[in-house]
Amino acid sequence: MGRSDSRRKNSTKKWKKVLLSVLAVLLLLVGGVAVYSLYTVNKALTTMHEPIDRDFSAKRDGKVQLSKKEPLSILLIGIDKESGSIEKGRSDTMIVLTVNPATESMKMVSIPRDTRTEIIGQGIMDKINHAHAYGGVEMSIPTVENFLDIPIDYYVKINMEGFKEIVDSVGGVEVNNSFAFTEDGKTFDEGTISLDGDSALTYVRMRKQDPRGDFGRADRQKQVVQAVINKGASLAGFTKLDNLIGAIGENVKTDLSSMEMVTIQRKYAAARHNMETVQLTGSGATIGGVYYLQVAEDERLRVSSILREHLGLE
């Protein structure tokens, strides 16, 4: 093998590790190792990149310095296109992820979509998932920052309808269902079940039959994404890998640049092996005929304090 061929092979391997490792961090999961074409990876990265026009967070002194391994935060937004476009639909899922490379740890908190809070930029109290419908990611980020009193450094937006394509691209997944239920004419037995793309989307959307409501649904969403990454990491065929990366590229948007992804993969990847879920709780309330989840102030401050400490903020 010539020197140029060797460099090309090493470059392909590098981008392979970057994409799957960073996706593992962004999707809260352990990344995998597989071989695929550099062209496919570059295309996926280009398609995924969607910078937004915003100032640095007032919650942090300037932009986070990835090269200095400063703790960072990422807002994961799942958009259900049935409620509108991926640009301005209501957010079906909102998860905040903090990563601290010094302690090699990650913390994750799911914000229930019915959480009542101030929508920054609208000056009203409403469900937190309406922020995206009002003003997209640009309004969701400051609203979450205000609610949790932490900076949001980056965002990752996932088209929930794209779950079907992503799951099908790996040949379906298996998950462990904690209780049996029927939804949209589909029956999901208790125990280990196999899901194709269509059934996976139904599985992660159900919440009314779940005694834990949004919290239970969030767990099912993480189950499916975990299974996709694990399955994708074990794929050996070029066709399936290209399909997987193509499906991710079409259904995931982020303001992380390719070089920022490289830096995260190099300096933050070890944190993915130690992840803690922080539970945010609240109580249901009907205000003006609309159901909300009311998070008590001491509970909000408790979760905020955990995340701020993890981010190394005073």
Rank of each mutant, 00 (worst) to 15 (best):
G249R: 08
N159G: 04
L76V: 10
Q65N: 13
E309I: 02
Q122M: 08
A24Y: 07
L235H: 02
E250S: 12
G62A: 07
P142R: 00
F188K: 09
D53W: 02
M206V: 09
I120D: 03
A269F: 06
N100F: 04
V156Q: 10
G232L: 06
A247N: 11
G135E: 02
V156T: 15
I120P: 06
T117Q: 08
A102G: 13
M275K: 11
E314M: 07
D80P: 06
I52E: 12
K208G: 01
R116H: 10
P211M: 01
G216S: 08
E70W: 01
K157D: 02
M139T: 14
D184Q: 15
I124N: 11
E276W: 02
T103C: 01
S304M: 08
A200P: 12
V224N: 05
L280M: 15
M1C: 00
D126Q: 09
N100P: 13
T182I: 04
V167L: 03
T254V: 08
G31T: 10
M206P: 02
E299K: 14
Q209F: 05
D153I: 08
F56A: 14
Y203H: 05
G62C: 08
L23G: 15
R60A: 09
D198G: 08
S257G: 15
E190S: 06
N129T: 11
D80L: 05
A24S: 12
H49A: 14
L301M: 11
V99N: 10
L20F: 12
G213H: 15
A24I: 04
V167H: 00
V173A: 01
S199T: 07
V22L: 02
Q279H: 12
S234Q: 08
T47D: 03
G78E: 04
K81T: 15
K59E: 09
L256Y: 04
K59A: 06
F238C: 00
R116A: 14
L256F: 11
G78D: 03
V204G: 02
V303S: 01
S234R: 10
T239A: 12
Q65H: 09
V278K: 13
S73E: 08
D219L: 06
T47N: 04
K9C: 00
V224W: 06
L241Y: 00
V35M: 00
F163S: 05
G289I: 07
S85V: 09
H130Q: 15
D198T: 15
T115A: 03
G123Q: 06
M48Y: 05
M94V: 08
E297Y: 07
R54S: 12
K69Y: 14
R217L: 07
V18I: 11
K88F: 11
V156D: 11
I287H: 13
G172V: 04
L148T: 15
L27H: 00
D255L: 00
I124E: 04
N230L: 12
E161Y: 12
A271K: 01
E104T: 07
D92M: 06
V99M: 09
T143G: 14
R217S: 10
F181R: 05
E314C: 04
A233I: 02
Y292A: 05
Q279I: 09
G197H: 05
P151W: 03
N159M: 01
L301D: 15
P211L: 00
D80G: 05
V303N: 03
P101G: 04
